[in-house]
Design a protein around this nucleic acid. Sequence first.
DNA 1: GTTTGGCATTAACATAGGTTACACCGCGCC
DNA 2: GGCGCGGTGTAACCTATGTTAATGCCAAAC
Lengths: 247, 247
Amino acid sequence: MIKTKPAQGELHRLREFGLRALAHCGALDEEEEKTAHAALADMQSVPAGHELIAEGEPLNRPCLLLEGWAVRQRVLSDGRRQIFSFVLPGDGLGLCARPDGVALHSTFALTPVTLAPMPLLNQRLQTRSKSPLSDAAWNMISLEETFLSNQVMRLGRQSAYERLIHLLLEFHDRLKAKGAVEDGSFVMPFTQEVLSDALGLSTVHTNRVLQQLRRERLIQTHAATVRLVDLVLLAEVADYHRSPRLG
Amino acid sequence: MIKTKPAQGELHRLREFGLRALAHCGALDEEEEKTAHAALADMQSVPAGHELIAEGEPLNRPCLLLEGWAVRQRVLSDGRRQIFSFVLPGDGLGLCARPDGVALHSTFALTPVTLAPMPLLNQRLQTRSKSPLSDAAWNMISLEETFLSNQVMRLGRQSAYERLIHLLLEFHDRLKAKGAVEDGSFVMPFTQEVLSDALGLSTVHTNRVLQQLRRERLIQTHAATVRLVDLVLLAEVADYHRSPRLG
DNA sequence: GTTTGGCATTAACATAGGTTACACCGCGCC
DNA sequence: GGCGCGGTGTAACCTATGTTAATGCCAAAC
């Protein structure tokens, strides 16, 4: 896999972002902050389209995603793809509660990504030491589970219209918790095909529903930026409930 | 909740079944077997239709399901129900890897069930002691995750026909691992509505697909018993792969 | 600056699956 | 033995979503 260091100027910004993301899940004490700070120096960039974790791979290299988006996915033997969940900047990657865990899904960079290995995260999960950092790790795992549960609900019992809204709201809230939302608008740096593979729809239909939402003035888009215009109404329509753990 | 002891005669059989189920996931040493044996004395029966674990409830009372079937489910505010996973006899219930875990789904008895509290299971998860019983607990959790992943794949990217076959094969393999399959046939003690709510289909369509499978002589049914006639062909059609962890 | 290729958009058409409604069947209950 | 009820089986019809294919747009590559 091709890996490079990010540009010098970026480095500082990303490191700060990483520390904030960790602290957001559970405030770090001084010692932990130092360890995390050191780990963040190891950050690496990977181009879009690369596989970050292969299905079946042992999960022993936890990372923090500092920049870019990734997905967890599986592919049927005839090529149909299902996206299970999204990994956003500030999210953990390759975490595992089980001692001998193995990846159930392949993890895949949607955009160029920057990530930093964060071995402490799994260590803390394994040893069950009680610390802010282990809180952070458990929080991340716990959120992943919540999102997966929502994904099942969407796919099983919601219409395309509801599903799309529900997913957009999830993005909104997750990004907002990371300070990446401005007046209801945020960046979704990927194609409608990705959205379709997450929602279990065809690209054509995903596009139709997007058009409808625009016509109804529930969302606005330009380039990769989406703006959710009426959050309350959208949440109502899609039976969406904000995860309390998003803080 | 109404709880009663099962009949005397049953008690012995169910206890043996419970011990075998635990041992199947990770062979017990003598001491653990004694503890488990004692715990199994506390078994209780709950009538069909009762909620065993409420959504949001803290997961601190792990149990072993000894008899009957249960489901984990969520319900949308307009009443649409989605079943996330099934709990079969011999499966664990209320397990949680996280220290402060809370149920994401409501767990619900499909039939009258008998279950035994098994506090040791969570203890072992929490303390990370290395023992056969903790292997068993992790195995159960790990299987749950696998099945949930398969559920997403089914709902997102498979046709009704494929979905149904895939789920039937999953039942087959899980029950077979517990010795409850005889020449490809096993008991599914619940209505087609349950199947529909698991597969994200209407009951009418579930019925249609069942008819089709019968016409194609891929399955046979009588009363609540199903027989999968050609396992290899079925697996091929539904892109089904047996979980290696089923032993 | 032209070409090219990926992506969004749109239209026409096809179909899987949903909805409603009703008949039927077995079973417990009076 | 008749009645009521929950479940299965069907049919007719409807619609959400898939498929195919064509068009246009824009940005990167040449």
